[in-house]
Design a protein around this nucleic acid. Structure first.
Length: 888
RNA sequence: GGGCAGUUAGCUCAGUUGGUAGAGCAUCGCCUUCACACGGCGGGGGUCACAGGUUCAAGUCCUGUACUGCCCACCA
């Protein structure tokens, strides 16, 4: 079987994607043997597109899953998508807007149908993108957060929590988007800096004894004031608390209170309190039992209120109009003391950028304050977070948690399973749609119009996807999942809530590990975003460089706890690695007999030093890459394999066996090299497969004896402890160092690479001599020699260039026009290095404290090094002297 | 304001119990050597942000400073 000269990913990937899907390769049997290993995918927005962050997220999970399969585990990786309430609704609303319609024009049912249409049309796109990356998910278990089964789980959870008092309905001041007509979670509000005005307004004391000046950016809320508040220790206002003040315009008499919340430094140190229209004032209103006066409605307009002081004229105005009008009135009646410019931040709807309005309304809540302690206690005993620096962040959030507002005033999502009886007002919360009021029997029931926050269904994802509330085999086998892989930005919305729900409904945490990976940034370290236009589309990259190149890049850069800076040239660079692997494999195939598995030899007893060396290194690399993946050090795994394959296997091993592969080479040497080549390549392919599944799959099935096989089903190679031979490996490295020394001399003296040199090696002892003799053929080919003399008795000719490697003098005969200057410069440079190192070492060794207090074995090691260097220095000085004489 | 990271070669970054500072890319020189020019061989390049401290020994541990980035809270 022959492979094309350069790796072309496109067809290869297409073939294997289809193969894996058609064969249900990644559908586990829950009853099979083996330890279970499971992951649920963090479901991306169904109508979105995967960005590079998803590509990283999915690639890391895929590495873990493929690796776990290799370790004999039964692996379940569940794919799916999220309905993403507000985001999706917005997308569809925008599409409607193009037809000149708004959602209210077509009505709730028709609108929801439109969203489903949209989902059916665009849901495939994201699924195809997951497939393009090569993710080894179980496609037979694909889930969507609005699936019927998941909807059932949502209702079950809602009703149970309601019955237990952990879900309640209450008035609360929420972040309200007057345009979207929905409450927003705190984290759905963007804080944008804005230029505004700070108006200083005088409030007269009711007893006429003076006044207090407050500062506000929102004078329109004066209409809803129910107190003025100062800091209890503020001398400026000492003695005033407890008095009454008169709110301008409405002439309302309200108390002057004190609270430590007030910042004395800001404005005038006196704060007007509007409990219905500011979250902090809401808290003050409750602690000080103030009046709650609503003056702004759900559209952000001034609503109708009691006509105090003729204020009714403001009703119906927008917030902005009213603000201007009130400022004018204050100016006119002399209450406006000062107007100053101020830079402050304004909360805006994260979808539509409308300024949010704090608004008191009826909402549903989950009492997460009560669920938090148990979720907090799960870390780190039951759940380990990697890297553990995120634990503090997790604790910090849970320690400051507030109840979770779960109702959203939109249409797309899980509708709240609560009904109100139109006749008697009874509130009914039920898993199934009730036919009649259980209290009065009437059938005029109105379902709550709100839907649940998207994260509500997401928080059930680890068990809802496995069929809960049924007691399924999946749940029994695969819950809790092994690890959750996610970016830190949803640690709060999602991870903590999954933990709470898992503990509450499954009696067990939803995952054992949480691996928090990096954020992918651009070359300048900026977050990739659509608005900046600096995003790298992962699928452009896949089509240009192949999925493996993209995956390898992401994995190689995924150092724990650090962001990734991504750029296209980097991916292009790693594509070269795919090609290198491809060509190394081509070389192997050319040197193996077609369709014939090499005759096995005992790898523990290989005769060739090069074979013993590469087998030794293979064992080390196996252990290292295994350990690296198991401890989420993805970059270590990728870089270790990169180095082994390129710098050791290709650069040295393949060159070392070329002699063995010649027709006239001894049969046993050829057989041993072939088998070793075959073994090392095969096992390296398996080690690389979790990171680069496609190219490894393609090469694997072209190997003799593996036609038609799927590398995804191969087990992790067994350890061969008998192959670990550090001494032999070191001997091989000595030969490599010696070859490199000759090459360096050649390059630095500008001797043409094709010119065949004569070299003298003067070994320090018989063992070294024997070793060099063993490597004679390698010296001849890899250093391109005409003649090699290995003898301590032989002396260097005067016209020669030299170096010393582990005491062995390496002497290159120079003939013809010798560039004396070049060689002298080279020797000086080399000696300079030795001198500097030796000086540092001698300094250390003459330090009494070092000799007495450092670990003895370390002192010994340093002494040996010093002796080696001194020996090298002496030899080089002698060689230099001889050369100088020749030069004169 | 509270908290968390980071600062190592031109660039992007590794550096796991303190013990000779590394990789990839880029750069320079030589080479169309029969797997690969998406290649081979070789070279140059770093006061490990700064200042102290602990230690025989600090990129690594401690304290402080500066700068950068992020998270949380607040901005009446």
């Amino acid at each position: 079987m022959s492979l094309p000269k350069a790796y072309e990913p496109h067809d290869v990937e297409e073939h294997w994607r289809k193969h894996w899907e058609d064969n249900h390769t990644f559908t586990p049997d829950p009853d099979a043997k083996g330890e279970p290993y499971s992951i649920v995918i963090p479901p991306p927005n169904v109508t979105g597109a995967l960005h590079i962050g998803h590509a990283l997220n999915h690639t890391l999970q895929d590495v873990l899953c493929r690796h776990a399969r290799q370790k004999g585990k039964k692996v379940l990786w569940i794919p799916g998508t999220d309905h993403a309430g507000i985001a999706t609704q917005n997308v569809v609303e925008r599409a409607l807007a193009k037809e000149g319609k708004r959602r209210h024009d077509i009505g709730r049912e028709a609108f929801i149908e439109r969203v489903w249409d949209w989902k059916r049309e665009y849901g495939h796109r994201i699924i195809n993108q997951i497939k393009a990356l090569g993710s080894s998910v179980d496609w037979t278990r694909e889930r969507f957060t609005m699936d019927a089964n998941l909807a059932r789980a949502v209702r079950r959870v809602f009703v149970r929590l309601y019955d237990e008092g952990l879900i309640y309905k209450g008035k609360y001041i929420v972040n309200w988007c007057p345009r979207c007509h929905t409450a927003l979670a705190d984290d759905e509000v963007d804080h944008n800096p804005a230029k505004g005005k700070l108006w200083h307004v005088r409030y007269d004391l009711a007893d006429g004894s003076g006044s207090v000046t407050i500062a506000t950016t929102r004078p329109e809320t004066i209409l809803g004031d129910s107190a003025v508040c100062v800091h209890p220790e503020d001398e400026r206002y000492a003695g005033l608390t407890g008095k009454q003040v008169v709110v301008p315009i409405v002439n309302r008499t309200v108390p002057l209170i004190s609270d430590r919340y007030v910042d004395r430094e800001f404005g005038t140190g006196a704060l007007k309190v509007t409990p219905c229209h500011d979250p902090n004032d809401w808290n003050l209103g409750h602690t000080h039992k103030l009046a709650f006066i609503q003056v702004i409605d759900d559209n952000g307009n001034m609503c109708h209120f009691e006509d105090e002081g003729g204020a009714a004229k403001y009703a119906g105005m927008s917030r902005e109009e009213c603000r201007a009008a009130i400022v004018e009135e204050l100016r006119a009646n002399g209450h406006l003391v000062k107007e100053e410019d101020i830079e402050h931040s304004v909360g805006c709807c994260y979808r539509c950028k409308t300024v949010i309005e704090p608004y008191v309304s009826e909402q549903w809540f989950v009492a997460t304050t009560r669920m938090a302690p148990q979720a907090r206690a799960a870390v780190p005993e039951l759940i380990r977070i990697f890297p553990d620096s995120w634990m503090k962040t997790y604790y910090n959030w849970l320690d400051n948690i507030r109840d979770w507002c779960i109702s959203r005033q939109i249409w797309w999502g899980h509708r709240i399973p609560a009904w109100t009886c139109a006749d008697c007002g009874e509130l009914i919360v039920s898993e199934t749609d009730p036919a009649a009021c259980p209290k009065c029997g009437a059938s005029h029931l109105e379902q709550d119009p709100d839907v649940l926050d998207t994260w509500f269904s997401s928080s059930l994802w680890p068990f809802s996807t496995m069929g809960w509330p049924e007691e399924t085999g999946e749940l029994k086998t695969f819950y809790p999942t092994s690890v959750l892989v996610t970016a830190f930005d949803i640690l709060f919305f999602w991870v903590a809530r999954m933990i709470m729900m898992g503990q509450h409904f499954m009696g067990e945490v939803p995952f054992r590990h949480v691996y928090i990976h990096a954020l992918v940034r651009d070359e300048q370290g900026r977050k990739m975003s659509k608005s900046l236009g600096n995003g790298i589309d992962p699928f452009d990259m896949v089509s240009k460089y192949g999925a493996d190149a993209l995956r390898f890049t992401l994995v190689a850069l995924a150092a724990m706890g650090r962001d990734i800076r991504m750029s296209e040239p980097r991916i292009e660079g790693y594509r070269h690695f795919m090609n290198k692997l491809w060509n190394a494999s081509r070389f192997a195939l050319m040197n193996l007999e077609e369709n014939a598995v090499p005759e096995p030899v005992n790898p523990d007893a290989a005769a060739g030093l090069h074979n013993r060396w590469i087998l030794h290194r293979l064992e080390e690399v196996k252990a290292e890459s295994d350990a690296a993946i198991e401890s989420y050090r993805f970059n270590d795994a990728a870089q270790g394999l990169y180095r082994f394959l390129w710098s050791e296997f290709c650069d040295w091993y393949l060159e070392l066996i070329k002699g063995d592969m010649k027709d006239d080479a001894p049969a046993d040497a050829k057989a041993e090299a072939r088998f070793t080549l075959y073994t090392v390549l095969k096992e390296t392919l398996v080690l690389l497969h979790p990171i680069i599944p496609f190219v490894t799959a393609e090469v694997w099935q072209s190997l003799p004896g593996h036609a038609g096989e799927d590398i995804a089903l191969q087990l992790f190679p067994e350890a061969r402890p008998g192959c670990l031979k550090p001494g032999d490996a070191d001997d091989m490295i000595f030969i490599q160092e010696t070859i490199s020394a000759i090459r360096t001399i050649r390059a630095e003296l500008n001797i043409n690479p094709s010119y065949r040199l004569t070299v003298l090696l003067r070994p320090v002892d018989a063992k070294q001599k024997e070793l060099l003799e063993h490597g004679r053929a390698w010296f001849m080919s890899l250093a391109r020699l005409e003649n090699l003399i290995i003898s301590a008795e032989e002396h260097a000719p005067k016209a020669s260039a030299s170096n010393v490697v582990r005491g062995c003098e390496v002497i290159v005969h120079l003939s013809g026009a010798v560039d004396f200057q070049a060689e002298l410069a080279r020797l000086d440079k080399e000696l300079g290095k030795v001198d500097r190192e030796l000086a540092a070492l001698n300094g250390k060794l003459s330090n009494e404290n070092f000799l007495t207090r450092a670990k003895p074995e370390f002192v010994e090691q340093e002494k040996a090094r010093a002796a080696d260097l001194a020996d090298k220095r002496g030899k080089m000085l002698a060689l230099q002297k001889r050369f100088r004489e020749a030069a004169e």
